[in-house]
Amino acid sequence: MAQVSSIANEQTSTPLSSSTSITLRISRFNPEHDESSGFMEFSVPVQKWTTVLEAILEVKKHFDHSVAVRYSCRQATCGSCGMIINGKPRLACFTKISELNSNVVTVEPMNNFPVIRDLAVKFEKLFDSHQKIKPFLIRDDTELVSDEKEFLQSPEEVEQYIQFANCIKCGLCNSACPTMATDSSFVGPQALAQAYRYVADTRDKGKDSRLKIIDDSHGIWRCHFAGSCSQVCPKGVDPAMGIQLLRGYLLGFRS
């Protein structure tokens, strides 16, 4: 399926002054009629600030609009454009081509997620796992009732979970996880880190019910602290830390 195209000499609506160009290899796969995935190659001019997402969008604009890619905010906030870039899970909008130090950039769909088409993957399992750990404050009273005071927290109490509240559900951690690579039932580092986010929140009273959910053979015990999830997280969430701290509750190191 390999195909090489170039836009260096084409008239473009967005003038590109760069003399540098890279080869962008895009994984193509349509489960409706393809037996296996293949790569298409495109020669794309880049600037030092060009992101991988911008390069993909150049390809869509000038060569093949059928390349399937999910994106939205272009600023590492929506968590839509996660993909494997030169072998590692990264956000396409947050990865500059210049930082890859390679003239060949290969983009593939994230591992451990079913492929919808090309670079777009299904997020249902991720969201189901996220929902499973009850990602909301559990308590009997509410601050929404009139005459009730809001739930106050000290800055120190906020520090305990705010890092994990940065999760944008991009799925990169699940894609990098070695357990996710082989265990289809594993709840995954994203959901486990979010379980810790709510357990560590002093406003929350649902610790016991959450610990019960993750205390499962395909739950927290399947994490072996490889730490790959933390290395690929684009928001500094550090799921590996959250999971180990969470396990500390189950092992009696924390209360």
Binding site: E159, N166, K235, G236, D238, M241, Q244, L245, F253
Partner: peptide, 26 residues
């Protein structure tokens, strides 16, 4: 090492992350 880590020992403390987001657990 792994058992200590599993208990949350030596994996760092939660804090507001700053770019370039070096994971404290590593």
């Amino acid at each position: 090492r792994v058992m200590l880590g599993h208990g949350g020992i030596g994996v760092g403390k939660p804090a507001r992350p700053d770019y370039p987001y070096e994971p404290a657990s590593q």
